[in-house]
């Protein structure tokens, strides 16, 4: 197995992912529809669109701060992630701040995450 990243094992190519309907797929084979359909089945989770507004990878080695505009209310959320952390972009697939590193460390096919990309994220269906 690839090593050198402390990201969770489920991002490594070949990892087996169970969709909400029970179907099993490899992480590298997931499609946008798999996430959408799984969220539709879920009683607690819903998919939100999170648009990348800013990527700052200038401060900390191997880390980046990604600023998103989340959901219909365009809430601003920033997350600090390792540059190889893969986000799933609608209609495109896995993308990271440093796709070369993602491919090297996780063997996960990946494209470059860019400002304007719309990522899949989750929120609770009822925030009460």
């Amino acid at each position: 197995a690839p090593s050198g990243s402390s990201l969770p094992a489920y991002f490594i190519k070949g990892s087996i992912i169970q969709l909400a309907d029970g179907e099993l797929k490899h992480v590298e084979d997931l499609k946008t529809e798999d996430f959408i359909q799984s969220a539709e089945i879920s009683s607690e989770l819903k998919i939100d669109s999170s648009t990348v507004e800013r990527i700052d990878d200038s401060h900390t080695h191997n880390f980046a701060i990604v600023q998103f505009s989340v959901g219909e209310h365009r809430a601003q959320v920033s997350v600090e992630v390792q540059v190889e952390y893969p986000f799933f972009v609608f209609g495109q697939g896995w993308s990271s701040c440093c796709p070369d590193r993602t491919t090297q460390l996780l063997e996960l096919p990946c494209t470059k995450l860019s400002v304007g990309d719309v990522c899949i994220s989750l929120t609770l269906k009822n925030l009460r």
């Binding site: 992912i17 099993l24 997931l30 209310h73 929120t123 609770l124 925030l127």
Partner: peptide, 19 residues
């Protein structure tokens, strides 16, 4: 072989409710 739930792969970005 471990099997992971689909939602593990998706970041949970919960905006703070302002109201």
């Amino acid at each position: 072989v471990p099997v992971f739930p689909w939602h593990s792969l998706v970041p949970f970005l919960a905006p703070t409710q302002s109201d």
